[in-house]
Design a protein around this nucleic acid. Structure first.
Length: 426
RNA sequence: GGAGAGGUGGCAGAGUGGUCGAAUGCGGCGGUCUUGAAAACCGUUGACGGGUUAAACCGUCCGGGGGUUCGAAUCCCUCCCUCUCCGCCA
């Protein structure tokens, strides 16, 4: 959520900045709601003030044993007016709040203009695209060839966009998770957390998935309004919802492995082949809560932590800055890491690292405080470190041999119990 | 699932219709004392919103929502959460 004070004081510029995200701000609506709110709020508060004063007088008069019935009659009318005004104010504030919740974050000035991913800016490339002296197979062909990736059974058990992994590919999938968690805890100073995979709607409002993106979520059928998490970002960031953290604890850095569940509404027909876009996938997520002065530096660092995983696995990738139009709802700036996939002959997203500034923190009331000052909003960041399924895809495709076997990256051999190659007999 | 107890400020904990945003203790901050620190003593210390150049000032908040009342932390309804015991169970 944006700062309402900013909207009141600088509507023109906010509006201009939001256009870079392709968002049209309704000036007239805001101005009119805001004006009504102000008038009503002042009126209501004045009435409340009178009521409080009169009530005290009644109390005092009663204490002296006086007749209070004339005073009470006067109060009846006041109470009635107050009730009406109060209700109007409530409705208005709810409307304003909902409207505000639907406004995306303002893109940072360094975010390139543009409408779609074609306008994203490539910042740097690491490694050379893998050269194979044979026709590369894609991960589906490789996995099915080894009889260790089984989409048909996934579809039978549940439906499309689900998968069953077998034997050493299942193990490699697990090895990747352990490897990533170990790296981020040991080398990058993150604390590992384990969190619920089902969350309530308050948490989803906090990080920005609700109210606008309900159709992307799986709702759990219970009396409570519960959802499966679309990313660990939701439960992990919400650890600090409605909390005030002592400045000495900053920065807070969490790493968390969870499954992620996404309905993928609106992506019908897109990436229908393979592991790239599943309803259920594993992700190791990096989350930071930092002092507002440090969030831009933290974004560079966090992105570097995700890059380190790719580098250690020796997977070629590039780093792009998302353009305004491709930027997510809550983010002020996002770096995507795109890994090279030989079979597709292109780079594909494997990590997304964002700075949200105080946008999520304001929704969540996640604040920090030092000795002298009042509570102030934190800045939040997160990034994939990395998406596990897509990393598996990248390894299969980049480390394939002509006969369809797969070499295991050096860094993973110990996690694979010494296995150095995936073969169909496994 | 059954029975019971409870949710109050950073924490602990009093408060059962008015002068209660809330005693007291701890913690925090400032000071006295001290070469310094500790102890002791004194003072101070909630959040959010409106308002103001700044202040003054005003409002809201005692788990959430609703109700009764001139007036609610306190009474009623409802939901959520925590704890204890029993049952079941990875």
């Amino acid at each position: 959520m944006l700062d309402p004070k900013l909207l009141r004081s600088d509507l023109e510029n906010v509006s201009k900045d939001l256009q870079r995200k392709g968002f049209e701000l309704d000036h007239a609506l805001f101005s009119s709601l805001e004006e009504q709110r102000k008038t009503l709020q002042v009126e209501t508060q004045e009435l409340q003030s009178v009521r409080n004063q009169r009530s005290k007088e009644i109390g005092a008069a009663k204490g002296r044993g006086e007749d209070i019935s004339p005073l009470k009659a006067e109060m009846d009318e006041l109470a009635q007016t107050l009730k009406e005004k109060g209700q109007q104010l409530n409705e208005l504030q709810t409307r304003l709040q909902e409207w505000l919740m639907g406004i995306p974050n303002i893109p940072h000035e360094s975010v390139p203009p543009g409408k779609s991913e074609e306008d994203n800016r490539v910042e740097r490339t690491w490694g050379d695209p893998t050269q194979l002296d044979f026709e590369p197979k894609d991960h589906v062909e490789l996995g099915e060839g080894l009889q260790q990736i089984d989409f048909e059974t996934g579809a039978k058990i549940t439906g499309s966009r689900f998968v069953v992994l077998h034997s050493n590919i299942a193990r490699l999938h697990r090895a990747l998770i352990q490897f990533m968690l170990d790296m981020h805890t040991k080398a990058h100073g993150y604390t590992e957390v384990y969190v619920p995979f089902i969350v309530n709607s308050d948490s989803l409002h906090g990080t920005g998935q609700l109210p606008k993106f309900k159709e992307d979520l799986f709702r759990v059928e219970t009396d409570n309004e519960y959802y499966l998490i679309p990313t660990a970002e939701v439960p992990v960031t919400n650890i600090w919802r409605n909390e005030i953290v002592n400045i000495e604890k900053l920065p807070i850095k969490y790493v968390c492995h969870t499954p992620c569940f996404r309905s993928e509404a609106g992506s019908y027909g897109k990436d229908t082949r393979g592991l790239i876009r599943q309803h259920q996938f594993e992700k190791v997520e990096l989350v930071q809560l930092v002092h507002p002065d440090n969030s831009w530096q933290a974004l560079e660092e966090l992105t570097g932590h995700a890059e380190a995983v790719l580098q250690t696995l020796e997977l070629p990738y590039r780093l792009v800055t998302l353009c305004g139009g491709d930027l997510g709802f809550s983010a002020a700036k996002t770096y995507d890491l795109e890994v090279w996939l030989p079979a597709q002959n292109c780079y594909r997203e494997i990590s997304s690292c964002s700075n949200f500034l105080d946008f999520q923190a304001r929704r969540m009331k996640a604040r920090w405080k030092d000795k002298e000052s009042k509570p102030r909003l934190l800045h939040t960041l997160n990034g994939s470190g990395l998406a596990v399924g897509r990393t598996l895809v990248a390894i299969l495709e980049n480390y394939q041999n002509e006969d369809g076997t797969i070499r295991i990256p050096k860094a993973l051999v110990s996690y694979m119990g010494g296995v150095i190659e995936l073969k169909s007999a496994d």
